[in-house]
Amino acid sequence: MDWIKEKFHRAGSPRYFYLGSYAWILGCYIVGIVLLGAGTVWGLWFTPPDRVQGEVFRIIYMHVPAAHLSQLIYIATAVAGFVYVVWRMKMANVFMVAAIPIGAWLTAIALFSGIVWGIPTWGTGWVWDARTTSVLAQLFLFLGLIALRQVIPDEHRAMMAVAILAMIGVLNIPIIKYSVDWFTTLHQPASIQIGRPVSIAMSMLWPLLINTIGMYLLMAGVILARMRNLVLDRERETEWVRSRFSQSAG
């Protein structure tokens, strides 16, 4: 167990994070782009069109991964907020700063692709039902977190406040998740659920799964890269950063 503890402590140290993260970022980028490319090509060209929806259904290959991942990032931000509030771990702070804009963009992509899909299929781009509204609320929560961080000048205070708001906002996640089951919404219930037979053809499912994994890895890479830059920026006065860059410069 001791080596796990040691790994954990090392990951929490900005210096070891900076040194160790490069390989992970590279791996995430390469595997993520390959999977996302393969899944997208498969989904757009080799999967047969849907019997009811026609070609439009292919938007799910962007829509579902983005929507899914944006919720995951929200939860991860709240967990990181908890870690920061309780243990004051520097890296939790860095993760929140790096992840929040990515989460906001993914939420925006999910909403936009949903609108594009909805215009031909539902006959309307936007409906004020529980699912769409609660996802829009998630976008505003992300934007609220960004706004709160910007108005408080002190970095530590700002991120503590952001952490509290993020934790309280987790209330919205189960509402998004179960809105299609609790309320009568225009948005259909999930086709893929754990413990139930999948209600989607296998030829359509595979590209979706590949795309989802690809999106996860690519965004993990983006967040890690952003964290790496933030670490460098915040630690620029420290000895290890100075010595590292004076060496490479000289």
Binding site: Q138, G144, N172
Partner: peptide, 16 residues
């Protein structure tokens, strides 16, 4: 204004 931006999204589930 900030207060409204922060809190109104949290009101959405209750409102719904």
């Amino acid at each position: 204004v900030l207060l409204a931006i922060l809190i109104l999204p949290l009101y959405v589930p209750i409102y719904l």
